[in-house]
Amino acid sequence: MALSSKFLLFCFLLIFISRSIAKTSFRPKALVLPVTKDGSTLQYLTQIKQRTPLVPVKLTLDLGGQFLWVVCEKEYVSSSYRFAPCHSAPCSLANAPYCFECFGTKPRPGFNGPVSMDVASIQSTDGKNPGKVVSVPKLLFVCADSFHLTDLAKGVTGMAGLGRTKISLPSLFSSAFSFKRKFAICLSSSTKANGAVFFGDGPYVMLPGVDVSKSLTYTPLILNPVTTATLTFTDLPSSDYFIEVKSIKINGHVIPMNTSLLSIDKKGFGGTKISTVHPYTVLESSIYEVFIEAFTKGLAKVPRVKPVSPFGACFNSTHIGSTRAGAAVPQIDL
């Protein structure tokens, strides 16, 4: 089942612990990255400038990503590239089990390995208007192989991790410029309207001049004590963000389900994860079945059409009306 609206705005404020160093006489209050939505993959993309001389690096935004990673196999040329030596502070910060030189490796710019450093620049902001472009001379990142780009948007050369780690971008930026350790991410459901990531304190002013920080609704974030990453350096808690969903309602009625699936078990399974990588909601199979049953009852008068993978229930949109909030479909509440 696919649901869409003309515009959807998500704003999340999240807290981090970090360490990094930036050499600049100007200390910004906050930073901002523009966010676009790729029409083919429906992934959210951003861009930073990295290396010496600076080059634009297109990245897929990963809300729960552990760190910034960039493909370094080809065309990585930078006079400011540095590696993290074995047992160094950056290596320890990343909790990496090994770094360069641990096994006699001779590093070079773009050499694939767990922890690297290079210059990166980003736009500062006062929350309303763009400010000076500032630089972090030794921003930590991970060099990766090109096969990691599989299924990512065209032109992307890495991923910008915003997860709950000490080397995610929010953590590194907050430490580098000594501003509050939080960020807000505003995402558009449209490929024609841009979003943004604000690092640091508000206000968070979006067009047409609305400070969305004054109208946010909050829900607690919970920690999954077991890592959910396919690639990780150590057995740390998950870097993803989870919320505690108690039930799911369709048109005001709670759908029957095994509610224990909504909680995180001892092995780290279950719970409700917020993700920017998957372009649609993914449900556990038994929950999905009862959800579809209840939703289709609410659209009983709308003809079904042949499902389009990966969705299991699709409807003829010409028979669906519209409201000020979007399509006239059953209301879903978590």
Rank of each mutant, 00 (worst) to 15 (best):
F141V: 11
G202Y: 11
T191M: 02
V156I: 12
E101I: 04
D201T: 11
T157V: 14
Y218F: 15
T234H: 12
L162P: 03
T157L: 10
S188D: 13
K132Q: 02
F147D: 13
G110T: 12
K180A: 07
K128C: 09
K132T: 12
V212K: 02
P109S: 08
A94C: 00
D211P: 09
N194K: 15
C91K: 01
C91R: 01
K106S: 00
G200R: 02
S116E: 11
I167C: 04
F141W: 09
K182H: 03
H148L: 13
V133W: 01
M206N: 05
A193Y: 07
P225V: 10
G110N: 03
G110S: 04
T217H: 07
C186H: 07
L162D: 03
F141Q: 07
T230Q: 15
T165Q: 04
G113W: 06
H148E: 06
F173S: 00
V133G: 01
H148N: 10
V210G: 00
N224K: 08
G195T: 15
E101G: 08
K154P: 01
T219K: 11
A184G: 15
S146V: 05
S174L: 12
P97A: 05
C186E: 05
S124G: 14
T150M: 00
T125W: 03
T228E: 11
R108N: 00
V119L: 09
A120M: 11
S168R: 09
V133M: 14
C99A: 08
M117N: 02
P220L: 11
I167S: 07
M159A: 12
T232K: 15
L236Y: 13
T217L: 13
S178A: 09
L139Q: 08
P208M: 11
F177Y: 14
F147E: 11
L221V: 10
F233E: 02
T125S: 08
R164Q: 15
P109H: 08
Y204F: 15
S135N: 04
L149H: 05
H148V: 11
G127M: 03
C143V: 06
Y218C: 14
S213T: 15
P137C: 05
S121L: 09
G163Q: 03
S124V: 05
I185R: 00
K214S: 12
L93I: 07
V210T: 09
A229G: 09
F173A: 04
A120G: 02
K128I: 15
I222F: 05
P220W: 07
K106P: 00
P130I: 08
L162F: 13
D211H: 00
D145F: 14
V226I: 14
G161I: 03
K166A: 13
A160M: 10
F177W: 06
D118Q: 13
I185M: 10
F199C: 05
I222T: 12
Y204Q: 02
K192N: 14
D126C: 07
D235L: 15
N112H: 12
S215M: 15
A193N: 14
N95I: 03
H148M: 13
N112P: 07
K154L: 09
N129E: 04
K192D: 13
K154F: 08
V210I: 10
K166N: 13
A160Y: 06
G161Q: 03
N112W: 07
M206Q: 05
P114Q: 04
G202W: 08
G113T: 06
F147S: 15
Q123T: 06
F103H: 12
R108T: 00
P130V: 10
A184D: 04
C143A: 10
K132I: 13
V142N: 02
V212G: 02
L221A: 03
A193M: 09
F173H: 06
G127F: 03
